[in-house]
Structures are given as structure tokens and as C-alpha cells.
Design a protein around this nucleic acid. Structure first.
Length: 296
DNA sequence: AATGTGCACAACCGCCATCAC
DNA sequence: CGTGATGGCGGTTGTGCACAT
């Protein structure tokens, strides 16, 4: 089940599990609710924000009649309901950007998220914890240790660059077959949510299912995402300073020069890491053999 | 089929900074 | 200046699913 199906399933689940989720806030308010948001709560919050705007979340929660804390409303809006929030698979370009920015700023999730259009700090944080830290764990080292940072920089990131370039090449062929009008239509359809609109059951359903249908097509995902992310990357590049290496720059700045890489931990763990990573399609046999040669 | 385990994600918590009063 | 409200942020937890056994 992909993520979008998962989201829609969660929405159905929330309807079913409604009325079973009432918990008591032990501090002061006996009516405060916690846990998963129901579809009805989402409607209420979205409509209230559409009519009155966001901000002053505690009073917003009260005036909207939501039995939630202001913080909970704010989080639900920013991480889930906001029209421009983009969910779904983290693209290759986004992965590369996350790795690069994290190496630069550390766990400054919010700051990193500012450079990934539509992505929330929570999503990036989750990505880091579930995907990246997993590999550090497999290596039995801290995510901040030099060995792991080298692995990211000298193996993972170049591999991402290669895959981005490969998909970009194949993508160009697809794009050349599309008319400009088709591309414009797609852009419009992806951005046609009007801030001051009132939400109905249909529009809500549309928001939560549009990305699912579009991203189920690999071709569509590549043509949409890679374009946008490259654009964002290059636009923002100036903000990062000169030391930030652009995707194609990994090859130009000698980042693949393994003779300078201090990869000194035991070969067993590294090989296992690479084997495990096959599931992520980031590594292949050639990489593993190449790395083993460097380690010998 | 039942159970256990890991993963991905949403949501919450606690701390801190800022701002209005 | 003190204080409470508010919002932002990073860390952590809870939950349901997929998959393995």
C-alpha cells in the first residue's frame, strides 16, 4: 500500500473509529480531545480557517467549536490540511537536498523544510529517522559519526545524483512528447485551490485523493516532481553559500574521489549495509565491489 | 490463520522565544 | 520588569499496516 492509499485508509479509519477516541485531558479541560483527527473535525477546521484565517490558535479552536488544543489545530493545519502541503514519496531530488542541508544544518528540520516546497518539518524529520537513521543503526554507529557521514556523502549522495540524472534524461524524452498546453493544464490543476473557498465533502475528498491518483503514475511523478525540484533547488541555491554542492556538482568537485575518503570501518558492516540498501535502489553490485576495492 | 516485528506516519509533549499588556 | 498567551521547534510516542514466521 503506498502512502496515499494509506492516507485515504486512515481517513476511512478515522470515520469508523470516531466516538471511540474521546480522551480526557488530565490537566484542566475535561472535554479536550486527543488522538487522530476525524473527517468532521477536519471540515470544521478547514472551513473556519477559510472564513476567518489562521492564527491565534487557542481562540480559533474555541470559536470553531473544536475540542482540541490550539497547538493541535495548528499542527493539523500546517502538517496535513494546508492546501499547499505536499505529501507522498520523497523524490530523489528532495532526498539529496535533505541530506545536503542536514549535513549543513543538522536537525534544523524547520529550516530544511523551508527549502523543500510543500514539505513539512515533520515529514522531513520522519524521513530522516525512518530512512537515514536506519542505515546508521545497521552500521552500528551514530548517525553523526564520521563513518556514516562519509557513507552518505561518498556513496548515497552520488548515487542519488546518478539516479536523478538518469531519470532526468528519460524524463526529457517524455516531456518532449507533451504539448506545452498539457503541462500548463497540469500546473493549473495542481494549484487551483483558492484560499478563501469553503470546503465541501467533495472538495475535501479531492484534496486528499488528487495527489494519490497523480503519483500512482510513475511517469507523471517524474515529470512533475523532477521539474519542480530542480527549479526549487537552483532558485534556492544562492541561499546555501558557495560550499553547497549542486546535484551535478558532486562529480565536478571531486566528491567521488574515494582516495580522499576516510572510510575506515569494518568491511563486513559496510557490505551488509549496501546489500540491505538494494531495497532502496540506491546501491548496486558495482557500487559494492567498488567500495570493497577501496576498503582493501 | 495467528502472531510477532519493523516501518511509516500522525500526533503529542516539553521547552523556549517572542510579544502584548 | 514581570507575566501570561501564543507559536515554533525538536524529540518522542502511539497507531495501523505490511510482511515474515
Amino acid at each position: 500500500m503506498d502512502h496515499h492509499q494509506h492516507v485515504n485508509f486512515n481517513l476511512r479509519r478515522e470515520i469508523i473509529s470516531d466516538n471511540n477516541n474521546q480522551k480526557v485531558d488530565e490537566d484542566n479541560n475535561m472535554d479536550l480531545k486527543r488522538g487522530s483527527w476525524t473527517v468532521e473535525e477536519d471540515f470544521t477546521l478547514m472551513n473556519h480557517i477559510a472564513l476567518h484565517g489562521e492564527g491565534r490558535w487557542n481562540s480559533l479552536a474555541r470559536s470553531a467549536g473544536l475540542k482540541r488544543t490550539g497547538k493541535s489545530c495548528r499542527l493539523r493545519w500546517l502538517n496535513y490540511l494546508r492546501p499547499d502541503v505536499r505529501r507522498g514519496n520523497i523524490t530523489l531530488e528532495e532526498q539529496l537536498l535533505i541530506l545536503e542541508l542536514h549535513s549543513r544544518w543538522g536537525n534544523r528540520w524547520s529550516k530544511i523544510a523551508q527549502h523543500l516546497s510543500g514539505r513539512t518539518d515533520n515529514e522531513i524529520k520522519n524521513y530522516w529517522r525512518t530512512r537515514v537513521q536506519k542505515h546508521a543503526k545497521q552500521l552500528k554507529c551514530d548517525v553523526n559519526c564520521k563513518q556514516f557521514k562519509d557513507t552518505l556523502r561518498y556513496l548515497w549522495m552520488p548515487r542519488l545524483v546518478e539516479r536523478i540524472q538518469a531519470s532526468s534524461n528519460s524524463n526529457n524524452q517524455v516531456i518532449n512528447q507533451q504539448s506545452i498546453q498539457q503541462k500548463n493544464d497540469k500546473i493549473i490543476s495542481n494549484n487551483n485551490i483558492i484560499p478563501n473557498m469553503s470546503f465541501t465533502q467533495e472538495s475535501y475528498s479531492s484534496i486528499t485523493t488528487t495527489t494519490a491518483s497523480s503519483e500512482n503514475s510513475i511517469g507523471t511523478q517524474i515529470s512533475d516532481m523532477s521539474d519542480n525540484c530542480y527549479t526549487n533547488y537552483h532558485i534556492n541555491q544562492g541561499d546555501y553559500g558557495e560550499s553547497l554542492i549542486s546535484p551535478t556538482g558532486y562529480f565536478q568537485h571531486g566528491a567521488l574521489d574515494f582516495s580522499t575518503a576516510d572510510i575506515d570501518d569494518n568491511q563486513q558492516n559496510m557490505s551488509q549495509l549496501l546489500l540491505d540498501d538494494v531495497s532502496d535502489n540506491l546501491w548496486n553490485i558495482e557500487d559494492m565491489l567498488f567500495l570493497q576495492q577501496q576498503l582493501n
